[in-house]
């Protein structure tokens, strides 16, 4: 008999996938906006916050550069996402294996060693660690459901973030397709009607982004009820 996975464990695995993707992807988006801010629009960070749906609590672009990366009291910051990934990973060691957990440990240790005003370029290796983490998930984890739960979280977060940032339609379809392939491995863990509704919404000529985001957020379903 296959070993069951408890509800809290399933949720942690899912959120581990989401938070690691969030660190990886937002780091990438942050660098792109950082580039825009250099010579085009000093207020672009406000748009960045708007698109991601995070509270703009920053006094200036300089303040944003620092606090968005390092402020542990700001739940939207990158360090907060990394800590959340770590919090979930730490209690999943026996499922994800020490070698996989190590990439998150090393990312945390790296950031802990940075001065609090360090530029985002010093975070490059953190993004590399997140990708290495995903590789280790594929390579090291033997239980299919454990892998699937992390990968569903990873791809759902990717779809969600790209949708928020108005990526090209083709790109969104590609990301939704990646998510769908993971969901189909675990049909009982997601709401299939919601996924059909998401597809129908996105098929409309001018689809409603916020409805698509809501539907995406309702796909994962593991409660015992």
């Amino acid at each position: 008999m296959a070993e069951p996975i408890s509800l809290p464990k399933a949720e942690r695995l899912f959120w581990l996938g989401r938070y690691t993707q969030r660190v990886y992807a937002v780091l990438h988006f942050f660098r792109k906006f950082r580039d825009v801010i250099i010579d085009v629009d000093a207020g672009a960070y406000c748009n960045f916050c708007d698109l991601l749906g995070i509270e703009n609590r920053y006094a200036s672009s300089r303040d944003f550069f620092t606090r968005f990366l390092f402020d542990r009291d700001d739940g939207s910051s990158l360090i907060s996402a990394l800590i959340s990934a770590h919090d979930n990973a730490l209690v999943l060691r026996e499922e994800i294996k020490s070698e996989t957990l190590a990439f998150i440990q090393m990312a945390i240790a790296h950031v802990d060693g940075l001065p609090p005003t360090a530029d985002v370029v010093r975070w490059q290796i953190v993004g590399d660690y997140m990708l290495a983490f995903l590789g280790a998930v594929e390579e090291r984890i033997r239980k299919p459901r454990v892998r699937d739960l992390i990968e569903i979280g990873w791809h759902l977060e990717s779809f969600d973030l790209h949708l928020r940032l108005n990526y090209a339609y083709d790109r969104l379809l590609d990301l939704r397709g990646r998510l769908e392939r993971r969901l189909l491995r675990e049909p009982e863990l997601f709401d299939q009607q919601k996924f059909v509704a998401l597809k129908e919404e996105m098929a409309l000529p001018l689809f409603d982004k916020s409805r698509a985001l809501t539907l995406a957020g309702q796909l994962f379903r593991v409660d015992n009820g």
Binding site: P4, S6, L189, N224
Partner: peptide
């Protein structure tokens, strides 16, 4: 029993 998803018990 260990409680799994969807009220599974082991």
């Amino acid at each position: 029993f260990y409680k799994g998803l969807f009220n599974e018990r082991q």
